[in-house]
Design a protein around this nucleic acid. Structure first.
Lengths: 162, 162
RNA sequence: AGACACCAUGUUGC
DNA sequence: GCAACATGGTGTCT
């Protein structure tokens, strides 16, 4: 795995799209679900979807794929935030995929269509709010078939919500 | 590798130094840590150290090296207790080292300076208390940069601790 | 093909 | 906190 140094790392800039994603299954293999949070400026989009039966690693890869397909502006820098060392490893070429070859290649080609994609590994259940949120979405999608595709606006500090 | 029969085996005698050691990484390769427990009579010494980035096998070899360097009395019999079939193999000459050649030679020369060194292979995570302890030390050293170098006295059965 | 080790993730149970 | 299972990877040797 290997965590990147997080603190000293420059952010991808104000125009970057942040893609937080997580996959879950009930049992492994088992019914899978994905959770995605896309953030661009003050706008957020939440996606939850059950995606059939498969393995935990397939769920993690599928969450990344689903999130990337949501991004139209392929010229914008994208930061993929995932807790799956496996998914980041096989997509960044650090690990070689022996299983899930088709899925890995499909997502890799998707990635190749973007101008600037970076990966950011985070520890699962380490308190990062966005990671916790997509984890809950993925778990609900896998367990209850929960599905959503909602826009949302970030609160502005000091400005009361309507 | 086959496990040696543990129960019927003669111990190395009352004056032997027991060197329990383990290496760990966070990811492989990744940040490494070592854990060492030296026992001589009723005295124990615990060592934990992060040792930079490398592979699991390098960590295992380094734990042995670090433990051996702690032993002054090279005339005493030493029992190296490790769960690494690789480390014991390359150091005992049963396996041939193609990688990590410098490190292997360095530790082998260290070993050659002792009068009586034996290896004892134990299964990892099989419940042996000393192995579990050095495993935890190594993992903490790799994960959190934990470091220690402490003396400790074994409890005497029937005698309450202070 | 096998062995040992080191991990990551996903679950299940208490 | 403690068990256990599965899916996937590397480091190393035979």
């Amino acid at each position: 795995m290997e965590s990147e140094a997080v603190a000293p790392r420059a952010s991808a800039g104000p125009d970057a799209v942040y893609l937080f994603c997580d996959g879950a299954c009930r049992g492994n293999p088992g019914p899978m679900g994905i959770g995605v949070l896309l953030r661009y400026g003050r706008a957020e989009k939440l996606i939850a979807e059950p995606i059939g039966r498969g393995t935990s690693n397939v769920a993690e890869l599928s969450a990344i794929e689903r999130g990337l397909r949501e991004i139209r502006r392929r010229d914008l820098p994208v930061v993929i935030v995932s807790d799956s060392s496996y998914a980041i490893g096989v997509l960044s070429g650090r690990l070689r995929a022996h299983a899930n070859v088709d899925l890995v290649r499909r997502v890799a080609e998707l990635i190749a269509g973007f101008k600037d994609i970076r990966f950011r590994r985070v520890r699962g259940h380490a308190g990062m709010p966005e990671n916790e949120e997509v984890d809950r979405l993925a778990v609900r999608a896998a367990a209850e078939g929960f599905r959503c595709d909602d826009l949302r606006s970030l609160p502005i500090p000091g400005v009361p919500e309507p």
